[in-house]
Write a protein that binds this DNA or RNA. Structure first.
Lengths: 161, 161
DNA sequence: GTGGGTGCAAAGTGTTTGCAAGTGT
DNA sequence: ACACTTGCAAACACTTTGCACCCAC
């Protein structure tokens, strides 16, 4: 929905590349367009598939080489839910402090923010002699559907565009 | 320090095995003794090394086959800090709701608990239509030493017993 | 004795990398 | 032109697994 913000993020990433004297190739363009046109969290494999819709020449290697750039730019966040693949979150620029709830069954992910929690984290870290560099709060739970039906229909609903 | 509690946890795990009709082999004994005699967080590889001090016949496969039992029993918690290996926390039985701060440089891990945060998590999850199944709050930061000296001397200090 | 358990080495899985060819600037 | 990029496939690192032998109960 906030198309403007997404366009903005995309532009920021282009600037980031320029600043590092990195080139905007057609493959990177396809990847970038994909990343900054979705609100969904995605895996490397999904990003590859989606990017290939825009440019068939995108390879797995390029996706894996581009992801670190995206996270380094601060516009995308890498998330590890303890599954064997990582998720990437393209909404990080807009909400740098958000957290996640993930359904244990269908991988449905919901974001939330809490100033109160952030504040408590700051207090505690300081008390323990640390400065916060990054923070991740992940809640695993059962979504409504899982609670009611015992299983989720959305299962893997995010696997395809 | 709370040797009794640790002994208690060990006994609970033995009971867990018995209930599932699983056997207490010498290799499992060595692994269990290791797990429930440390307060430290460890990786699979560390557990293998330490267990071999007690019983040289412990193999990597057995360690990897025993870890799921430990987590399933609820006495050990698997933690994923986004590194390529997982950490395991043997203090979970005593403090089921604790969280972690990890130094980005030396992997020093400090535990903390916060009822206030737990309460906020509950409220938020409920509001979003989830029941909490598990929760993990991980803060990555700079420890005192890293802040002062720019590097940590403890680096990998937990790699050996 | 029997069904679970073990070590070994091979297989898996997600991710990284060496290399020769290709391409943005 | 030159340095950065790419695709491919081989290499990696951690974890899992098939199999024949072993052992706790």
């Amino acid at each position: 929905m906030p198309v403007t913000e997404k366009q903005n993020a995309k532009q920021k990433f282009m600037d980031f590349l320029a600043k590092k004297q990195l080139r905007i190739t057609s493959q990177r363009q396809a990847i970038i367009d994909t990343v900054f046109s979705t609100e969904e969290h995605f895996t490397a494999e999904q990003l590859l598939e989606w990017s290939r819709h825009r440019d068939k020449s995108v390879s797995r290697a390029t996706v894996y080489r581009t992801l670190p750039l995206l996270t380094e730019s601060g516009l995308v966040r890498e998330m590890d839910f303890g599954k064997d693949y990582k998720f990437y979150d393209p909404n990080y620029a807009e909400h740098p402090n958000h957290n996640h709830i993930i359904c244990q069954d269908c991988d449905k992910i919901v974001e939330f923010e809490s100033e109160k929690i952030a504040k408590l984290e700051d207090e505690i870290s300081h008390k323990l002699g640390f400065s916060i560099k990054a923070q991740r709060l992940q809640i695993t739970g059962n979504c409504e559907e899982l609670k009611k039906l015992g299983a989720c229909r959305h299962k893997s609903c995010h696997e395809h565009e």
